[in-house]
Write a protein that binds this DNA or RNA. Structure first.
Length: 509
RNA sequence: GCCCCGUUCGUCUAGCCUGGUCUAGGACACCUCUCUUUCAAGGAGGAAACAGGGGUUCAAAUCCCCUACGGGGUACCA
């Protein structure tokens, strides 16, 4: 049988990395079994609609390499894939449930509900629910005479509530957690159809999952407590249930609860895949892309948060993840996000990336930084030097930007103290030899410097650090011989002359 | 409060289903050494965990129960 999976986000803001992981696991499983993967937008709460969120979700997942077969941006056999556009369908099914005795109409106002909760709370009941006990005190089609119900249906707003059956133990099998059971006395008569005619999540997700032929529902653990309701809904409709799998939550690094959109930039690392600008407040949150992550680095790390491959390898391409992934190896407990490890995983991917692709990725970043313009060919030489020296793309630029930004003198005091006066004194003579050096490559430059140092009775550690400061202004970095080669004869000389102008000659006054 | 789910190194986790092979394995981070002009990368090594208590058993990280702790849910939000 063909598997059909879906990712069903709500466009109430940017997708956060927990959502990306949920999408990823669904995607991985769909692709592994050659099934179908659907994007469904759950926009049934009109009050929480955020402009741009849906586009953001699609763009983010696409950047991550997570692709869909059907969705609002693609179409498909069960279109529309936006729940707000399927409104009529849900109302029809909600009424069907009423006819079958699995649901009823309720007319209580918000104030009346509030009042009921207060009353029962005062009577010593904690968190009063609309359930078998309280429903008999409320205004609904179970308590009101039929004529009044008809009258109210015509004249006032109403909701449709699920009628939780009494005295039953609802059991279902979770692919990750095993059997879970809840007694119906713990459940309340959830609203299925809201007074604005829109369904709640519970109704919409069951109806759509059935209609769209979903075989596996993989979602966050926060849905575990409402799954018994969904199970009962399937029973009420007489539909076959999909398999359920509830993923462990992604926790904040401090362990204080699940990661949420509101964490924004507060944690010291991005929680969104892409930059997000809040359309209401104008507040901007950085994303993983802007931070310099490779999509394959992010998804690889995310895959590891809550899932473990059967082998000890940790670095996977998306294709390899698809092959290796399985629900059996998903763990049950929540995982804290560890930015350091995410960086490391990304670094591994940077090192695996062909130099051409790495260069193509870094080139626009380089230009955007306002650094002197550079050709891709030139940048590729620099990337060969930089690629092992950074975990995030911008760090690669930082590692080699001195090639295009000559050091400024005087150096800061802490660096100045590293200059070797002996070398500075000899430098003018060295320069003359260096200028004439043939051929101009790292190997001959290395040979030259070593022989000079030897004849001056200086060690390399007396020579190189000072020379590096003179040429790059930095105390550390790639091989100095290679740097000199790439800098070229002219630029090397120019930088050394400027250095000597500052430090070389004692000016007589 | 009530309900549900969870609990192995600081973190992510392997092992648990199918008790013995676990003096509990790997990875990130950390520390030491090594390579190197330096930093990074690499190599070698180190410190570091079965939440607690009861059972069952010849034997328990693994099975059962209780407690504690953590998280989630408890909306006409998803």
């Amino acid at each position: 049988m063909k598997v059909v999976l879906r990712f069903a986000p709500s466009p109430t803001g940017p997708l956060h990395i927990g959502g990306v992981r949920t999408a990823l696991y669904n995607y991985l499983l769909a692709r592994k079994y050659g099934g179908i993967f659907i994007l469904r937008i759950e926009d049934t709460d009109q009050t929480r609609f955020v402009p741009g969120a849906e586009e953001y979700i699609i763009e983010s997942l696409s950047w991550c390499g997570i692709t869909f077969d059907y969705g609002p941006h693609i179409g498909g056999p069960h279109a529309p894939y936006r729940q707000s556009e399927r409104k009529a369908i849900y109302a029809e099914y909600a009424h069907l449930l009423v006819e079958r005795g699995w649901a009823y109409y309720a007319f209580d106002t918000e104030e009346e509900l509030e009042e009921m909760r207060r009353r029962f709370e005062a009577a010593g009941m904690s968190a009063p629910q609309y359930n078998a006990i309280t429903r008999s005190y409320m205004k609904n089609s179970l308590t009101l005479p039929p004529e009044e119900v008809q009258e109210r249906l015509r004249s006032q707003p109403y909701v449709i509530r699920f009628l939780v059956p009494r005295g039953r133990e609802v059991r279902f099998y979770d692919e990750i957690r095993g059997w879970v059971s809840v007694h119906t006395k713990e459940m309340d008569d959830k609203v299925l159809l809201k007074s604005d005619g829109m369904p709640t999540y519970h109704l919409a997700n069951v109806v759509d999952d059935h209609l769209m032929g979903i075989t596996h529902v993989i979602r966050g653990e926060e849905w575990l407590p409402s799954t018994p309701l969904h199970v009962l809904l399937y029973e009420g409709f007489g539909w076959e249930m999909p398999k359920f799998a509830h993923l462990p939550l992604l926790l904040r690094p401090d362990g204080g609860g699940k990661l949420s959109k509101r964490d924004g930039d507060q944690l010291g690392f991005p929680v969104f895949p892409l930059r997000w600008r809040d359309p209401f407040t104008g507040e901007v949150s950085e994303g993983y892309r802007e931070r310099g992550f490779l999509p394959e680095g992010l998804t690889n790390y995310l895959a590891l948060l809550g899932w473990h491959p059967a082998e000890e390898r940790e670095i996977f391409t998306m294709e390899e993840l698809i092959q290796a992934f399985s629900l059996e190896r998903v763990s049950k407990s929540g995982a804290r996000f560890d930015f350091e490890k995410a960086r490391w995983v990304n670094q591994q991917h940077i090192r695996k990336l062909p130099l051409e692709r790495l260069t193509a990725l870094v080139h626009p970043l380089w230009m955007a930084r306002g650094l002197p313009s550079i050709s891709e060919v030139q940048l590729m030489q620099l990337m060969a030097l930089a690629r092992e020296r950074g975990a995030l793309l911008p760090e690669l630029i930082e590692a080699v930007r001195f090639f295009y930004e000559a050091p400024t003198f005087p150096l800061p005091p802490e660096k100045e103290s590293k200059l070797n006066p002996n070398l500075v004194e000899k430098l003018p003579q060295w320069m003359d030899h260096l200028w004439a050096l043939e051929p101009w490559n790292a190997a001959s430059i290395e040979a030259f410097i070593k022989s000079q140092a030897k004849s001056e009775k200086m060690t390399l550690s007396q020579v190189l650090p000072a020379l590096r400061l003179a040429l790059t202004g930095e105390e550390m970095g790639p091989s100095l011989y290679v740097i000199i080669e790439l800098l070229g004869r002219v630029e090397t000389r120019r930088r050394l002359e400027r250095f000597l102008a500052e430090y070389g000659v004692r000016r007589e006054v």
